[in-house]
Design a protein around this nucleic acid. Structure first.
Length: 372
RNA sequence: GGCGGUAUCGUCUAGGGGACUAGGACGUGGCCCUCUCAAGGCCGAAACACGGGUUCGAAUCCCGUUACCGCUACCA
């Protein structure tokens, strides 16, 4: 189950792998044989049924690919268990046995493994093998500076899918946490460019704090870079009942005021009439402030637009202003009621454009309903 | 406690001895645009943890202190 979460996360991000996964359990017989051999060579010994590795007082050091040289001393390490009393191997031992077996040349993992590395190097030595290149990348912390956990919301990367984050934005954001291409560049709309720009020189040695706000900003940038036409295909089936051209027009209208695909979907569906118009808190307050005035404005607009010949942004703009002027009203006193009747929100694209997107028939229907 | 890692705006970071009045981005404050806004434009506030060295010169190199993080399992 945990394996699947990781695999799903990678798939979602568009990251692939070319072999495996390989499971530790598959190497049990070899692990046991390797441990027995170390015992036979006097490099490990039995202790309460378990097999314990004998740590000598020697220096253990390596040139980390991310950090500089890291040095430990054998005297600070205790003899550690490599095989439990039930003959199953412990992680530190199993990985070394496996990596030797698989001829692994580079090991990159989180900073939290730095303390495991000297033990593993000792095991490579005991096996008479050259250790691989180790690189320890910084960890990612929550906004509170603590290790990421359930309390911080999404635990698995793929959870962000449901928050309306695009995988390419997530990848871009994650890559920049603990890594910088140098200079001021930070937006990568093409993963190929990112791969090309990557280097261990740019990897930071310190942990980075995850900032959801910046993720959303970056997501908005990616959505705009992708453009309405291609974005429609990445939104799931929220707009699938609509003709593609219609869906694209809706997305285009709503994109400037969206940071996540959820924002896009919500506004687009609402404009398409797929979801009902329900005034939000601010809209309800606006109506309550002067309900007769609100209805009157909608009534005037409904009458004026009902016979309007030109249902274009420019034509509607002119018509709406004419309504306001001839009734001695400010433009806003006409526009805002229309906006609310059409979207249930006090925020949207300019009202004339909104009318075009919603469409003549649906718009007049909602306006009429609001006036009553 | 021991061992290890790390230390530049609130956050992500640029910076590899003089180019630093320390740059960019997110966020944030203000202004403009304007029928509204989470959109666009402009402007601003905001950081080299501290103390010693080295050097003509240190954000950059060295040492110490402090803080934070990790490990210290017959977990991974």
């Amino acid at each position: 189950a945990f394996t699947q979460v990781i695999l799903d996360g990678m798939s979602w991000l568009g990251l692939s792998w070319d072999e495996g996964p390989f499971f530790q359990g598959a190497g049990l017989a070899r692990h046991q044989a390797d441990a027995d051999r170390l015992v036979a060579e006097g490099k490990a010994y039995l202790d309460d049924g378990a097999v314990r590795f004998r740590v000598q007082h020697e220096e253990v050091a390596w040139d980390d690919a991310v950090h500089a040289r890291i040095v430990f001393h054998g005297k600070d390490l205790e003899d550690f268990v490599i095989l439990r009393a039930d003959r199953t191997p412990v992680y530190n031992f199993a990985v070394v046995s496996d990596d030797v077996h698989m001829r692994v040349t580079h090991v990159f993992r989180g900073d939290d493994h730095i303390s495991n590395t000297p033990k593993q190097i000792l095991l490579y030595r005991a096996f008479g093998q050259e250790p691989p290149v180790f690189g320890h990348v910084p960890m990612i912390l929550g906004t509170d500076g603590k290790k990421l956990s359930k309390r911080h919301g999404a635990t698995a990367v793929a959870d962000y899918q449901h928050e309306g984050i695009l995988p390419q934005a997530m990848t871009n954001f994650l890559a920049l946490l603990g890594w910088s291409p140098g200079g001021d560049r930070e937006l990568f709309f093409d993963i190929g460019e990112m791969i090309e720009a990557f280097g261990f020189d740019g990897v930071q040695g310190k942990a980075a704090v995850f900032d959801p706000k910046k993720l959303e900003w970056m997501n908005a940038e990616h959505m705009r870079a992708i453009g309405p036409a291609r974005l429609v295909g990445l939104l799931g089936d929220g707009l699938s009942t609509l003709p593609p051209a219609r869906a694209e027009a809706l997305v285009a209208a709503v994109l400037p005021r969206s940071r996540t695909t959820l924002d896009v979907l919500r506004q687009a569906r609402q404009r398409a009439g797929l979801d009902p118009v329900v005034p939000d808190e601010k809209a309800a307050a606006f109506i309550a402030k002067d309900e007769p005035g609100y209805r009157r404005a909608l009534d005037l607009v409904t009458q004026a637009l009902g016979s309007a010949a030109d249902w274009s942004a420019a034509g509607l703009e002119a018509e709406l202003r004419r309504v306001a002027e001839s009734n001695g009203m400010k433009a806003g006193a006409v526009m805002q009621p229309v906006r609310i009747a059409l979207t249930g929100s006090t925020v949207s694209e300019p009202v004339n454009e909104l009318l075009v997107v919603v469409g003549r028939e649906a718009a007049l229907g909602r306006l009429g309903a609001g006036a009553r």
